[in-house]
Simulated scan of single mutants.
Amino acid sequence: MWKELLSVAFYRAVFTEFLATSVYVFFGLGSVLRWPSALPTILQISITFNLAAATVVHISWHVSGAHINPAVTMAFLLGSRMSLARAACYMVAQLAGGIAGAATLYGVTPAEIHGNLGINTVQNGITSGQAVAVELILTFQLVLCYFASTTHHRNSNSPAPFIGMSVALGHLIGIYFTGCSMNPARSFGPAVIVKKFAVHWIFWVGPMTGAILATLIYNVVLEPDLKSLAQRLAILKGTFDMEAEDREEAKESRQAVSLHNSHPGTLP
């Protein structure tokens, strides 16, 4: 654990999560401001969150893994893809980034425009239970997309386009129900700035539950994770060499592709 905590790369990754989340929240919330000359549309908001997510994921992917979301970090922790210390630091950085992004937007926007700064609320007669269920489903598909698009032996390219599309998909539906959070940091930032926490718990319970469910479905059913208990504990403590494991997976993938090319029909 101490080796990880004392490395420069660790703090570079934590800072990257802070920076990426603040940029994501600034641009995302900026799309929901109600300017009198051009009120936002559902499509505009969805596209902006799409582009913001894709941009920050592409920027931060190779540095921190581009979580920008405590729910995603929780999923990766439970899926034995990161240590407990890294997950805790990521979540703190993401929440701080959410506050920084919301505060910056608040500071550069006229008082009559920023309003409630796009905080997530329950809308259109939706009950709290229905809102939690919707946030669960929206985050469920997002976390599944994260797992599928960041699996090294399947895809070595940037997952930015796929994650951006998943974020847009959630907004195209979720805006009608809750304004679409899928990300506690996105909800926490503006809530802190405007000091409004009514039904804020929904935007923690829904996304976190969806992330946990997605972790179970992906790592048990869709692509079973065969790590041993000893490996999982080593990852949790931060003593497992994840980079060596990734290199081994990449090597096995290249060998499989080479075998298939030299002997067509030997692999599905």
Rank of each mutant, 00 (worst) to 15 (best):
K251Y: 09
M165F: 15
G164L: 10
P70I: 03
Q44V: 13
N69E: 05
F10L: 09
P70C: 06
G125T: 04
V122Y: 04
L6W: 06
L144T: 09
E223M: 15
S64N: 03
F49L: 15
G28Y: 02
H62Q: 09
T104F: 15
L117S: 03
H171G: 10
N155L: 14
W201C: 04
A96D: 06
D246G: 11
A13D: 04
T127D: 05
S22F: 07
S7V: 09
T73N: 05
S31C: 09
T127R: 06
R254T: 13
Y146H: 12
R86K: 15
R254M: 14
K227G: 07
V192T: 01
V132S: 03
G210K: 01
S128F: 14
L138P: 00
H67I: 07
A13Q: 07
T239H: 10
L226S: 13
C89L: 13
H171T: 12
A54M: 08
A87R: 02
T239N: 11
G107L: 10
G179A: 04
T151W: 09
G28N: 01
T150R: 00
R86V: 10
V134R: 00
T266A: 10
P224S: 08
L33Q: 03
Q231P: 06
H152I: 15
S22L: 05
S128K: 14
Y11E: 13
V257N: 13
N261L: 12
L169W: 13
M182T: 03
L138A: 06
A71L: 06
Q231L: 12
A250C: 14
A131G: 10
V205F: 08
Q130C: 10
M182G: 01
V199E: 09
S187Q: 01
G107T: 08
V92C: 09
R86N: 07
L222A: 14
S22C: 06
H153F: 15
I212K: 14
T21W: 01
G189F: 03
A87C: 12
I59R: 04
L33H: 02
N116R: 06
H67A: 05
Y11I: 13
A66E: 03
Q130H: 13
V205C: 05
A234S: 11
T127K: 07
E223Q: 15
S158F: 03
S187P: 00
K195Y: 13
L6M: 08
F162M: 15
V143D: 04
T121A: 11
S253W: 11
L105N: 01
P159N: 03
